[in-house]
Design a protein around this nucleic acid. Structure first.
Lengths: 209, 209
DNA sequence: GCGTGACACGTACGCTGTACGTGCGTCAAC
DNA sequence: GTTGACGCACGTACAGCGTACGTGTCACGC
């Protein structure tokens, strides 16, 4: 029997195998060995299917939150959990980022994050701000890692060799670092910087309050 | 006469007016009052056209870099310049983010950023790391602002009223802050936090070196 | 006058999402 | 046991998409 979850799973598998551009209702139907229109008995339209994919991916984030750990470690763990699922479904992650979601999927991650931030001493608006900043960093990082580089994080080698050292001295001299990119180290670097910056703010708040 | 830039400009105008989904070769041709196939005399295919759109948007970033200013102010200015163009072409920005670019457009912003980071005391790999982290934050922020919220930065009001306070106490109590979002303040908050974090690193490096 | 190239355009093909109708299986009511 | 309703898989059909290819119309050098 066909079902919504079977369709979503097949769609995710197809995206990971053939890319997001290759996702068509006909392709998904073929993946499942059914007719195209059969899908519409379980999903209203393609947009809703893509939303369901987003929801599925986000809900698979594994938060093994340890309330006894120091809040800095909990922040690190949650950020890595977010990143891990994106690496598990890299191409599907792109469709998640390219869609506005109207669901409550991923509400649990937010809940956990806010609780952690409360432990760190951030409450009310400050906690929400910190959360949004963190999410922005993580999303931006994943967007780079997953393949879409907004302003070429790892620049293409061919393009760089053409760079005129006189016009772009910095880019030219730093080209070895610009062309290579260890995503793990890069992510951890920014994560650590953010955690430390948060710790500074937390101390300030603690001193004041 | 038709020209590549006229086509790109029309495409951007169409995207901003009707949304990225509405971009079709036929639509762009209609916008210009020409036949569809005439476009292909100036653009090899749709993908190349979208790349040209990205290039055009990125090249319009206005960097009025002031080398005499303190590096922290220069970082702030460059980040805001990036953000400003995204606000000028919000929907086109989404196509920029959703495409991997293979061009050297936006090489100048990178050059300026690296020069600024050098002034701040970051060289070699450290400078590139800082740049990438900054870009990640900016891109992630813009992705939220521009309308696509990965894990609902400003959560939908309707969705939140249904949240069970027993299951999601934090989300529930912080809902007034989660439902509203002053993008300017939000962006400046994160920007300031990053700049301060960078300043701390810069001092450390200075003390060591 | 005569190529020759640039360029706007029409036609046509294979693809897409999906509205609609059809047929088959199962189950409830009588 | 018959009948009606309903869920669900499916086929057909249509509008719209990107674009390969051929055709027409110019301005130009010889």
């Amino acid at each position: 029997m066909l079902s919504r979850t079977r369709i979503v799973d097949a769609a995710i598998a197809l995206i990971e195998r053939a890319g997001a551009d290759a996702v068509s209702m006909r392709g998904i139907a073929a993946e499942l060995g059914v007719g195209v229109m059969s899908l519409y008995n379980h999903v209203p339209n393609k947009a809703a299917l893509l939303d369901a994919i987003s929801e599925s991916v986000l809900s698979q984030i594994e938060f093994t939150d340890d309330p006894s750990a120091h809040w800095t470690d909990r922040v690190r763990m949650q950020a890595r959990a977010f990143r891990q699922i994106a690496h598990h479904y890299p191409r599907s992650t792109m469709v998640v980022f390219s869609r506005q979601l109207h669901s409550t999927a991923g509400l649990l991650p937010v809940e956990r994050a806010l609780a952690t931030l409360r432990d760190a001493g951030f409450e009310g608006e400050a906690a929400v701000r910190m959360l949004r900043m963190f999410v922005a960093y993580i999303v931006g990082s994943l967007l780079r890692e997953v393949g879409v580089t907004p302003t070429f994080a790892p620049v293409r080698d061919e393009a760089l060799v053409e760079v005129d050292p006189a016009l772009f001295p910095e880019v030219s001299s730093l080209s070895p670092y610009l062309t290579s990119c260890d995503h793990d180290e890069e992510f951890e670097f920014g994560l650590e910087l953010l955690v430390q910056a948060m710790a500074v703010r937390a101390e300030k708040r603690g001193a004041r309050g």
